[in-house]
C-alpha cells in the first residue's frame, strides 16, 4: 500500500519536474518549426488565392462594342463602368453624361446618354459637376465610356467587378470581344484602370 502510494506520488510529481535546457530547446524548436510551417502554408494558400487568374478588361484595348452588356452569363453583366476621378475634368458639358447635341445641360432623361440612367450628375460649385456610377443600374454597355473617351479625358472606363463576376473558366464575353481586351490577370492586381 505504501509502495503504491509512493508510486502515485512519484508519478504525480512528474508534472512539477523541472525541464532541462536541452528539453526546453527541443520543445521550442518543435514549436517554432510548427509555427513557421503553419505560416508558410497560410502564406502560400493566401498567395495562391490572390494570384489566381481573374478576367479583366484592358481599357487601352477596349473598343466599347457593347458585347460586355449582352454576352455576360449573368442576368446583368459583371462589367461595370468605373470612374477615375483623378482624371475627370468635372465638366458641365460631360461627353459621357450628355447625348451629343443636347439642347439643355440638365438631368432630364432625354438629355442622358446612359440607357439605364446609371450615371449620376451632382453639382459641386460653378462650373464643376461630379459624375458617379450607380453600379446597380450599370449594365456595362460602355456608351458613356465611348462618349467620355471621344470628347473628354477618358476617366470613365469599363472594368469587370470581381465582387459580381463568377470568373467562369471560359468567359463568355472574352470569347466574343473583338478587340481581345478581356484578359487574365492575377487576382492580386485586380483592376486595370488608366490613370
Amino acid at each position: 500500500m505504501s509502495d503504491q502510494h509512493s508510486n502515485k506520488l512519484k508519478s504525480g510529481n512528474t508534472g512539477n519536474k523541472k525541464i532541462g535546457r536541452r528539453e526546453f530547446f527541443k520543445t521550442g524548436l518543435r514549436a517554432a518549426a510548427l509555427i513557421s510551417l503553419g505560416s508558410a502554408t497560410g502564406y502560400l494558400l493566401s498567395k495562391s488565392t490572390l494570384d489566381d487568374p481573374v478576367w479583366q478588361i484592358d481599357p487601352e484595348k477596349c473598343v466599347q462594342c457593347g458585347r460586355c452588356a449582352t454576352h455576360c452569363v449573368l442576368p446583368v453583366s459583371a462589367v461595370k463602368c468605373m470612374h477615375v476621378y483623378k482624371m475627370c475634368g468635372y465638366c458641365d458639358l460631360c461627353g459621357g453624361y450628355f447625348r451629343p447635341q443636347v439642347k439643355k445641360l440638365d438631368t432630364g432623361a432625354e438629355n442622358q446618354l446612359c440607357p439605364t440612367k446609371a450615371l449620376k450628375r451632382t453639382f459641386v460649385e460653378p462650373p464643376y459637376y461630379r459624375y458617379d456610377i450607380d453600379e446597380e443600374l450599370c449594365n456595362g454597355c460602355g456608351k458613356c465610356v465611348e462618349g467620355c473617351g471621344s470628347f473628354g479625358n477618358g476617366s470613365l472606363q469599363l472594368q469587370i467587378n470581381h465582387n459580381i463576376c463568377t470568373n467562369c473558366n471560359k468567359c463568355a464575353i472574352a470569347r466574343v470581344c473583338p478587340a481581345g481586351a478581356i484578359i487574365r490577370i492575377p487576382a492580386s492586381k485586380g483592376y486595370l484602370l488608366k490613370k
Binding site: R67, P100, L113, C141, E146, G147, S150
Partner: peptide
Amino acid sequence: DFENPAQNPYDLSLDSL
C-alpha cells in the same frame, strides 16, 4: 456578325456629327 457595328445596340455613333 461581330464585325458589324450595327450589332451593337448601345452604339454611340458620332459619324453624323
